[in-house]
């Protein structure tokens, strides 16, 4: 159910690390963007199933991008990746509608666990949609 993944990070290295941490059970279609503005554009044109979003980026930072993406698509599944896990930052991104926040650097385990949770949520909302029909 997760096929297309958008990764937004200004660091090539961070994108590389993130890709290497994705589960290898299947091939994901990965789209990358290197700042918040590009990320928003990519979200609109690619309609990814899941988005990994860095917070500190040039041009447009992750907070702003998150806000625009969530306004555009309230069902967007966005995982914020940051090393700065201050409670104030966490509260901010969660209030903006992020699905969750994971700490940098990511690991195979943390990405796998996060994606399991995303799948769970996608299943639930699918079921809810069906029952309401």
């Amino acid at each position: 159910m997760i096929n297309k993944i958008l990764m937004v990070d200004d660091s090539e290295v961070a994108l590389k690390i993130l890709k290497r941490c994705l589960p290898t059970d299947k091939e994901y279609e990965c789209v990358t963007a290197s700042d918040g503005a590009e990320g928003v554009e990519a979200y609109k044109s690619e309609k990814p199933d899941l988005t990994f979003l860095d917070l500190t980026m040039p041009v447009m930072d992750g907070i702003e991008a998150l806000e625009i993406i969530m306004n555009y698509d309230a069902d967007a599944m966005v995982i914020v990746c940051t090393a700065d896990s201050q409670k104030k930052v966490y509260d901010k991104v969660m209030s903006l509608g992020a699905f969750m926040m994971i700490k940098k650097p990511p690991s195979k385990e943390s990405i796998k666990a996060a994606m399991m949770q995303v799948l769970q949520r996608l299943k639930e909302s699918l079921r809810n949609n069906e029952s309401s029909l």
Binding site: S11, E12, V13, A83, S85, V89, P105
Partner: peptide
Amino acid sequence: DILQEVMNISFGQVAA
């Protein structure tokens, strides 16, 4: 690039 990312991660954790 790698150094930059190591710094980002380190300093982010420090800030937190």
